Simulated scan of single mutants.
Amino acid sequence: MANRFVRARPVQERLPELRERLNSGEIESFEPFGSAMTRALNRARFDPETGEAVWIEEDYCSPPLAMERAEVLDDYFEALTVVEEDIDEAAGWRQIDDLPGLWEQTIEGTA
Rank of each mutant, 00 (worst) to 15 (best):
F46L: 00
I56F: 00
A90I: 06
D88Y: 02
V83R: 08
P64H: 05
V83G: 02
D86N: 07
L73F: 01
A91C: 01
S62E: 13
A66P: 00
E57D: 11
A44Q: 10
P64L: 01
E71T: 01
Y76L: 15
V82Q: 03
E84L: 09
P64N: 09
A90F: 08
T50E: 09
C61A: 10
C61R: 07
D74T: 11
N42Q: 10
A66K: 13
G92V: 05
P48V: 03
N42M: 12
Y60S: 12
A44S: 15
T81N: 14
N42I: 00
E58I: 04
I56N: 05
E58M: 10
E57Q: 11
E85M: 04
R94N: 07
V54W: 10
F77L: 07
E49P: 01
E49I: 05
W55Y: 15
R45N: 12
L73P: 00
E58D: 03
E71H: 14
R69E: 10
V82G: 07
G92A: 06
C61E: 05
A70Y: 14
D59Y: 02
G51T: 12
E84W: 04
L80K: 02
N42R: 05
W55E: 06
T50L: 13
E84V: 02
Y76A: 15
I56V: 15
C61Q: 07
Q95N: 10
A44C: 09
A66H: 07
D86C: 01
D86Q: 03
Y60T: 05
R43Q: 12
A90S: 11
F46P: 02
I87V: 06
R43A: 15
T81K: 07
A79H: 15
R94E: 10
A90H: 11
I56M: 14
L65R: 01
P63T: 09
E52N: 10
R94H: 11
F77Q: 04
A53K: 09
D74A: 04
G51S: 06
P64V: 03
N42C: 08
E84I: 04
D74F: 03
L41M: 11
V83C: 06
V54Q: 13
D86H: 04
G92Y: 00
E58A: 14
A53T: 09
Y76P: 11
Q95S: 10
A66G: 00
A44P: 15
N42L: 08
A91I: 06
L65E: 08
D47H: 04
E68P: 06
R43M: 12
E89I: 00
R69N: 05
E58V: 08
Y60K: 12
P48Y: 11
A90M: 08
T50M: 09
I87W: 04
D75N: 15
F77E: 14
W93H: 13
V82R: 13
T81A: 15
R43E: 07
R43T: 04
D75L: 03
L73K: 03
D88S: 11
P64I: 00
M67W: 13
D75M: 02
F46G: 06
L41H: 10
I56K: 08
E78K: 13
M67I: 01
E85C: 07
N42G: 14
A91W: 01
E52W: 11
E89N: 06
G92D: 08
D59N: 15
D75P: 01
A53D: 02
T81Q: 10
D88C: 14
E68T: 04
A79S: 08
T50G: 09
L80T: 07
I56Q: 03
C61K: 09
